[in-house]
Write a protein that binds this DNA or RNA. Structure first.
Lengths: 149, 149
DNA sequence: CCATAATCATTGCAAATGCAATGATATATC
DNA sequence: GATATATCATTGCATTTGCAATGATTATGG
């Protein structure tokens, strides 16, 4: 088995390279890190999400959420409140500033992603989409039997 | 655009989840981290690689290589020498112990990967393989026009 | 109700990481 | 052949991360 042809390696390398392309947009230009970007992304659409829902909607664990949220609040991009019905939780919202930043960044991130995907044939794109969806299901199945995530 | 359906997000999540499954094998059981595993993987096959070739054969940068190699040498799994014809470089080799460890781990890592891939249909696997190969080429193309990697 | 356990988020600390600075060696220039 | 420049690897330092410990709040059992 050659490393370069080992499937998990190819997957990891391609995903990292793709990811780096996008981080270059929202990170280098706007100083957001991946977890922050994901939070903003979710909030820009939902406007308001509590910490439980957030855990379900991302792969971020609670420490990552807590820290990313603290930084985003610091920057004035999101708000964080403690709901009265259950004061262990947090409810996150997005500020006008945060929404504006998202509106500015998203098209650029999408453009960069498209730039890459558009350079693939339609057939290859479809294959990737299908394969990725199947992989997702396969890995989820594995996670159920082996715990953690 | 919904985060959960955003292609780059799906790719990153699937790749991370897959990766985690393998780290559970070589990491949790054998105390290797991803960079160390990659180095061992390369060396187990090539027996002997210099630092330049190493840079070409992985996506690890020189700091990652330097540190992973230092840890592996510390553990007695690889050797590191300075070649006389160019003393700026390093030549890495694998020890008998390192090779034995690799021989023990590889089947388990492959088994875990297969476990996941085998639960996909042959068609989905083929699609994933094709899509991934195309994506690799697409991202490489982009990297050439926008610096860095 | 009171005590205990459960469920969250946050914090502390050690390990890891990224990036710029340094050190070592080799190549190019004069 | 001495000096400047380039190419490596390593190290130092500030930041980030992961994991266990803590703190806050709520649910449960007597």
């Amino acid at each position: 088995m050659q490393l370069e042809s080992f499937f998990p390696y190819r997957l990891a390398v391609a995903a990292e390279a793709f990811s780096r392309q996008l981080i270059e947009v929202y990170g280098r230009t706007y100083g957001l890190k991946r977890e922050e970007w994901r939070l903003i992304f979710l909030l820009a659409r939902a406007q308001r999400i509590d910490s439980l829902e957030l855990g379900r909607r991302t792969t971020l664990d609670k420490v990552q959420v807590s820290r990313a949220a603290a930084r985003l609040e610091e920057k004035g991009l999101i708000t964080k409140t403690t709901p009265d019905n259950d004061r262990r939780l947090r409810v996150y919202g997005i500020t006008a500033e945060g929404q504006a930043l998202f509106n500015e960044i998203l098209p650029q991130v999408e453009a960069r992603a498209s730039e890459i995907l558009k350079s693939m044939s339609a057939e290859d794109r479809a294959a990737l989409d299908q394969g990725l969806e199947a992989l997702k299901r396969a890995v989820e199945g594995r996670r159920r039997s082996r715990g953690k995530g």
